[in-house]
């Protein structure tokens, strides 16, 4: 329940995670800079991590923490490829706007 101030329950963490996910999603939707969009994706993945860790803490199950490892690895990999693409875009157009991505071929 969200009524008592002193007691922090699983719901608090889940709502925080939802808010964080939404902010990340807005970052992806609203921004035109590829790098900021990638940052939005990182925020979304972190929101998921938060909910995993919170579930793991409140249900006494350690599997949630294992999932966080996998999410982190995938996030790091995604950041690596995303940055490589951004560097390629920048070298060609001197700007990292999402609209230039349609020109990337072969």
């Amino acid at each position: 329940m969200l009524n008592s101030f002193g007691h922090v329950s699983l719901e608090h963490y889940l709502v925080l995670s939802a808010i964080l996910f939404t902010i990340g999603m807005l970052g992806v939707l609203l921004r035109k800079n590829v790098l900021v969009m990638l940052m939005g994706i990182e925020l979304m993945l972190n929101a998921v991590n938060l909910s995993f860790v919170a579930f793991s803490h409140f249900t006494g199950n350690i599997n949630g923490q294992i999932m966080v490892f996998f999410v982190m690895t995938v996030a790091a990999a995604e950041a690596g490829v995303g940055l490589a693409l951004a560097v390629t875009i920048f070298k060609k157009f001197k700007e990292v706007n999402i609209k230039f991505f349609e020109n990337l071929k072969g």
Binding site: M1, L2, L10, L14, A18, L26, F58, T59
Partner: peptide, 29 residues
């Protein structure tokens, strides 16, 4: 913005409505 806010509200609402079903607090790691 509206759809993102809607999604957030949907998740928060779902969490709030299902708080009876979530195992909470009792079995902390």
């Amino acid at each position: 913005i509206a759809s993102a806010g809607w999604l957030c509200g949907l998740i928060a609402g779902a969490v709030y409505m299902s708080s009876e079903m979530i195992v909470s607090g009792s079995k902390a790691v």
